[in-house]
Amino acid sequence: MTDNPHETRAGGRPVYLASVGTALPGDPVDNAELARVTGANQEWIEVFIGTRTRHFARDLNTGEVRFSLADLCARAGGRAVEAAGTDLADIEFVVLGTATPDTLMPATVNEVADRLGIDQVPTFQLQSGCAGAVQALSLGRSLIASGEYRTGLVIGGDVCSKHLDIRRDVSKAAPSDLVNYVLFGDGAGAAVLTDEPVGEQVEVKHVLNRFTGLGRQPGQVIEWFGLADRHDDRQALTEDYKAIEEQVPVMAVEILWELLGELDWSPDDLDYLLPPQLSGRMTRKITEQLDVPSATEVSCVAETGNNGNALPFLQIERLLEKMTAGQKALAVAIESSKWIKAGFALEKI
């Protein structure tokens, strides 16, 4: 422990979360509508997935793209800056975590900065799945803790629907293929980080971000197609849901106890728990295995679908509606693409 109250456990200044903003495209799509369009079985969606609604950047009936990732991230970022009560001119860096950029070049983060009117600042884009938002939070926290910057914007978002052929009848698809049509949604979230306790006055106490996939097969693969191979008979998005279902609950428990140990917190110290947001059913299963009865669960996936890097910000948004001075929250996130452990701890001062 440091003797300096103005230094974090990892060194440097404390970092605060001043605000959060989110953006979900269009109206929620329920299971009946999803089943009608795709041919999936509504009862199977509700029992096996346990997600009730989700939002799509594409119109399910026409296939028209209504929102790009940059659209959603700019909207979420603008809302976060407004909620923080700060000016866009005060933002000194922008970090975006995503698995589904609009283009490989230019980086989507730069399109977002342009739409927000932010210029002459460092920008970073982290290519990652469900852990990307935590990686963005980790980088933003480090930049401010170093003392070089005072205020920054971190963003997470994904438009997963771009990888799905909504004209395809999936009624006879294998479960490993079908799950991709009913599990995911689209969205974005953002947070303003500061070196002083302004706005929500929530300190980012710790962030965990660790690759643990040495020698392990990926649990999820998103292909990229170029001009030379775009007609290959390959599925754009594949997921080993059985491996995910087996490994994620175990990893979640490991992350929980690792974070508690780093913070010298006990489970009874937690007021809120933000579990991994895979699906409504999986999140319930994981929360039961985490077994922290003193903490109130904060989840959103049953209403938003699995929209990847937007999820932690959607959870934080719900958390901030409840959190009061002195309360502690711990979040667990896992990326199954090549297995990344992630999480963070928050405390309202």
Rank of each mutant, 00 (worst) to 15 (best):
G77T: 01
G77M: 08
G77P: 05
G78Q: 10
G78R: 13
A80S: 11
V81A: 04
V81S: 05
E82G: 12
G85V: 02
T86A: 11
T86V: 14
D87Y: 07
L88V: 12
L88H: 12
L88R: 13
A89K: 13
D90A: 13
D90C: 10
I91G: 04
G97L: 03
T98A: 06
T98R: 03
T98F: 00
D102V: 04
D102Y: 08
D102S: 07
T103V: 02
T103Y: 13
M105R: 12
A107I: 04
V109K: 00
N110S: 15
N110R: 15
E111S: 13
V112P: 04
D114R: 15
D114F: 15
D114T: 15
D114V: 12
L116Q: 08
G117N: 06
G117Q: 06
D119R: 14
Q120G: 13
V121N: 00
V121T: 00
V121I: 12
P122H: 11
T123Q: 10
T123N: 15
F124H: 08
F124D: 02
Q125I: 02
Q125K: 10
Q125G: 09
L126D: 00
Q127W: 07
Q127Y: 10
Q127C: 11
S128R: 14
G129L: 08
G129I: 01
C130G: 15
A131P: 04
V134P: 03
A136S: 10
A136G: 03
S138P: 09
S138F: 13
S138Q: 11
L139G: 01
L143K: 10
L143T: 00
I144L: 06
A145M: 08
S146K: 02
S146I: 11
G147P: 06
E148S: 15
L153K: 06
V154Q: 02
I155V: 07
G156W: 01
G157Q: 06
G157C: 07
G157V: 00
D158L: 02
V159M: 05
V159P: 05
C160A: 10
C160W: 08
S161K: 07
K162I: 10
I166C: 03
I166Q: 08
R167A: 15
R167Q: 15
R167V: 05
R168D: 08
V170S: 06
K172W: 02
